[in-house]
Structures are given as C-alpha cells and as structure tokens.
Amino acid sequence: MSDIPENLKYTRDHEWIAETDDGTAVVGITDHAQEALGDLVFVELPEMHRDVETGDVCAVVESVKAASDVYSPVAGNIAEVNLALDESPELVNADPYGEGWLFRMTPASPADLEELLDAQAYERVLAEMDD
C-alpha cells in the first residue's frame, strides 16, 4: 500500500502539492506514481519564472521504459526547481514527499488548492484504479 500523507493535497494525475509558510507551494509526484514508473533515470524540470495554468505540462519524469508528464496542480508561477534531481533522479523514488520534490510555485490563487483532493479522496482514486 502506498504512502499518502494526510497534510498534502493531491490530483487525479498523481501529483501532490503542499502549502508552505511563505505563500509558495511545493509540488512532487506521489509514492504511487514513483512506484508505478519504477527507477527514474531523468527528470525534466520547468523553466524558472514560467507562468503555468492548471493542468499545464510542466515537468517530465522518465524511467527506462516510460516517460510521464507532470501537470501543474494549480495556476501560478514557477519559483524554484529541485536542481538536485539533475544529478540524482533516484531521490524521487527514495523520498517522493521530501528530497524528491520537483518544483516550488507561487499559486495565482491560494484558494485553488482547496479544490484539490485530500488524502482520503486520493486514496479512493487509487482504489478505483485497482478495480
């Protein structure tokens, strides 16, 4: 059973997003997503300061046999990317909710985060997929 922390918000496309104290939000892919992809070999990160809409493709995570788009959970501006992934994409596998974060963004409207799935709702999404 994959790890779904209580304090995060989720999308149906298996991204997570966490608000921080400075008004920005951190985005990554879920434990389920990293598990499904297998060992990551490359992460293509978004350009800094790019404006993105909800659902825009803003990163790509690659394993040996698959490449998956990462969509922006909310609209906003890219504030920081996790440069450590250039050298060590395996951080996403080892610690998807910690050192394996992908990028930090400034949401256009913080209220948008409330629209996203909470941990229980995301767990139900995963359960439906199993059926």
Partner: peptide, 8 residues
C-alpha cells in the same frame, strides 16, 4: 529510449 517514438 524514453526520447523515442515508441515511448514518447
């Protein structure tokens, strides 16, 4: 190979 058409 993830750059290539059979995956991307």
């Amino acid at each position: 190979q993830a750059r290539e058409q059979h995956i991307r």
